[in-house]
Design a protein around this nucleic acid. Structure first.
Lengths: 98, 98
DNA sequence: GAATCTGGTTGGTGATGCAAACTGGTAGGC
DNA sequence: GCCTACCAGTTTGCATCACCAACCAGATTC
């Protein structure tokens, strides 16, 4: 198997999914963001965003902190160190392949 | 929306799928390949490979030529010019994003 | 006749995307 | 107080897609 194909075959599917890739790339850049910010930046509807966040949480790639902005609930997201590493590895393989 | 995220959002989903990305990247490099070669290089089972090829054909990204190697049937695949352009655009967006 | 070869099709399972319904709380009008 | 509307997210129902194994078709070879 040639090495470009090898890299593609090894891509982390959890991160490769564009919806989650946007989330992870955003969190990688800003360290912390809330649900509404992610929704606005990614253009996803809230149901889809919510389910991608759940998937990333289940994978332990993001940490979720439910808090309040005044009296309004706010969900804060950040990348875990595992998530950060996974993204860096994904990015490295993508760069090597293309 | 920041430009990295914009690029990710615009990625062609038909090509983004790793199975099809491997096929397209291989065909981009070699111009023509047969079914068994693709199966061997990608490691996919034939059912999955066959359905990805059908999808790419439906999208008019690949051309399929059913022929014979001696008396044994052989399916030859090549990228169409639309497929070539789509791959180049995909690669450009990936490179810009990462 | 039985096994092999190439490739396609089918059936089942899980993932994704969207809209709509829902939850638990807040705010405003009267 | 009470009713309605809103807000932040989550869950659900439905359609489509991806993956694998198994089976099938048509021809060949042993």
């Amino acid at each position: 198997m040639n090495s470009q194909i090898q890299r593609i075959a090894e891509l982390d599917r959890v991160i490769h999914e564009p919806g989650r890739l946007m989330i992870v790339a955003l969190l990688y850049a800003v360290d912390q963001a809330d649900f509404l910010y992610l929704q606005h930046e990614t253009g996803m509807n809230k149901g889809t965003l919510s389910s991608h966040i759940s998937r990333l949480e289940k994978e332990e790639y993001v940490e979720v902190l439910k808090t309040y902005r005044g009296k309004v609930p706010q969900t804060l997201l950040s990348l875990s160190s595992a998530g950060r590493k996974a993204f860096e590895q994904y990015r490295r393989k993508i760069r090597e392949a293309f």
